[in-house]
Nucleic acid binder design. Structure first.
Lengths: 368, 368
DNA sequence: TATATCTGCGCAAACGATCGCCCATGATAG
DNA sequence: CTATCATGGGCGATCGTTTGCGCAGATATA
């Protein structure tokens, strides 16, 4: 038996009676120390051990150190299931998303997991269907049943205010990932997409491009709106008129990028550059250009957004905007578990991250 | 520090908020009924309710139907935390992986989540570091602490026998994903990579290719070995000699594909076709060919493996082998939770899946 | 010295299921 | 007609924590 060698420092008759009342020993194969063992070895009560574990209440330094020593010595780890039951709250962080870019989800997971490493938290992933009328109920039952400690909401569903209200209602911490800064830094991690798009568009303009096409994101997406705003601002700033025909609707998918590019290619004269609101669509533009024999970047410059792996794998590699998703995921997770871990509680996690232009081979000055 | 802490005041206030939110619009799931409520409403004991929930023991049809009616009526859902504590087993499925292809992880998650949909199970993701000496201990503490119901092991770490033994030891169900069939169908889901590679290679040979290069996967990977075996088998079968110089080492990464392609391009004469053991490396070959001005598929045919999204997004789109990862993930999850769900317990989940050749634009007959 | 105020700490009751045992009931055999 | 058995169903212990309440003992104030 694991603890037979430990000295029992108190002869508590109540405890002895308790031990005697146990009808039969459980399977001791998975014998792990419980809080009772720690209390017995330290000569205190469970409550006191719980106090040092949860840093609640005040207690003598001697007592605390004694208990901490015993914990360290036995390698005691509190049982998460029992904690969850007593606390009514689980040590799980949920990642709720609605099938946006696959690479983005994975980078997000990576960032969150980095923050959760060496903590007691685990990551639970949960895709939802935004178009389903039951979506809110699904999420609600997910949060309530699993008693999640917190959730990270990925765009585009992070833009649904009802979801945020739901989290408040069921008392679940949450962080919304987004493309524009809300006035709620505790529940929001965002990037400065607008500035980055302005920078990208200025880059094209500086090279001499004047007929620049835009492939937008789907309607109703905040990120799509913000990126389009930045694009239009940069053009207006340079005094360039933007005819409606140069704006093509996209759906953030490769195929929609191809379709949008086809429509832009049919214009007379053709745009000399295209800004696509994400890399998937930019890859579609490149694909469509190749199909038509349009040389990139000689006859057509392309800029994407996201800097997903595909941007660097196509030929020519795409100039794009790098979005620090991993760092944002880490920050989001730290915002949620921040008060539960004792790692430097002072410095606030940043809420805004800077996206930067990555110059590769898909951009060149326009032909004369 | 070692343990997470809770702010007591937060916990209290949220409890109050939760209690206040009980007068709820929907009469269904907000006020969570307990098993005691069900027992009282049905006029039976907790134990009997538990019997119908867990399908254990035998009991009168009248009793069962009565209880089921009450459960349906009240929208009762058993508390997962309490179940986990009493059962010593959580309703969580773990996905343990060591950073292989990102797209593969995501497809895997999708497949598993499809199987878990409408069950009480959730998916917990856990990346590990295979090169770390603590890897086994990390996984062990993960399994033991979270009391996982089961885990899905992704390649390449699925090939580590010690991991499988560890799962047995801690009494955790597991399924290993792989590229070759082991003799343990209960714990293995595999695809017939070898046959698929043979088919792909035969395809190249039938078109007239004789100098075919191979970019292998990293040493020690079973999938790499199996794919290489298939390649060599198909060449031998056609009586084609394979000089060692036509085999280049790859690491399953885009960059290693570029490097391996460069070395093959330096050969005199150059190979007319290259089989890369995954799409990432195949994309690297295409990238390297473009850099050198080698026309694909006119001067060089390329075949990849996996059919990840990138294969269809580059130009020309890559001929590749499609691996039914999503279906395999679903099957793996069903193998684990199969006996816990009442969905047709008779039909065994398949252990072997068929990979098929997808013909796209990166293959053509060799030039004369 | 007596009273009031803290402070550290323990007892025992939740938390919400599961499950070992025991009992009641009706059927069947001797 | 009684003894044995099979079977549906209940009581209460248990899983390992957290926490409300209360009680000593120490310190401060009058």
């Amino acid at each position: 038996m694991l603890f037979a060698t430990f000295a029992v420092s108190t002869s508590n008759s109540c405890y002895a009676a308790y031990m005697k009342s146990v009808p039969k020993p459980r399977n001791k194969a998975a014998a792990k120390p419980t809080i009772n063992d720690i209390a017995r070895l330290a000569g205190v009560s469970k409550k006191t051990v719980s106090r040092v574990i949860n840093r609640s209440g005040s207690l003598h330094d001697d007592t605390r150190e004694k208990i901490e020593a015993v914990i360290r010595e036995t390698g005691y780890v509190p049982n998460p299931q029992a904690r969850a039951l007593a606390l009514g709250r689980n040590f799980l962080i949920g990642l709720v998303h609605d099938n946006p870019n696959a690479q983005m989800i994975l980078n997000m997971q990576q960032g969150i997991l980095e923050a959760l490493r060496d903590t007691d938290f685990e990551l639970v992933v949960r895709p939802v269907d935004r178009s389903s009328p039951d979506m809110l109920d699904d999420v609600r039952s997910f949060l309530v049943r699993q008693r999640l400690y917190g959730v990270v909401l990925l765009p585009p569903i992070s833009e649904i205010d009802a979801l945020a209200r739901l989290c408040e209602e069921v008392n679940c911490k949450y962080v919304r990932m987004g493309s524009s800064v809300l006035d709620d830094p505790d529940h929001m991690v965002a990037s400065n997409d607008r500035d980055a798009v302005i920078e990208a568009t200025r880059h094209l303009i500086a090279l001499g491009h004047r007929r620049i096409g835009l492939i937008s994101g789907p309607h109703g997406f905040n990120s799509a709106q913000v990126r389009r705003d930045g694009f239009e601002f940069a053009l207006a700033e340079a005094g360039i008129k933007l005819p409606r025909s140069l704006i093509a609707d996209g759906q953030y998918t490769f195929e929609s990028g191809i379709a949008a590019a086809e429509s832009l290619f049919d214009l007379q004269p053709r745009p000399t550059a295209i800004f696509a609101c994400n890399d998937e669509m930019a890859a579609g533009v490149l694909f469509a250009a190749r199909s038509r024999g349009i040389a990139v970047p000689e006859e057509l410059s392309i800029i994407g957004f996201d800097d997903t792996p595909i941007a660097a794998r196509v030929w020519p590699p795409l100039t794009t905007v790098r979005w620090p998703i991993v760092a944002m995921g880490r920050s989001a997770a730290l915002k949620i578990i921040g008060d539960a871990t004792s790692v430097s509680p002072e410095d606030q996690e940043p809420s805004t991250f800077v996206s930067t232009l990555v110059r590769r081979g898909s951009v060149a000055p326009p032909m004369k």
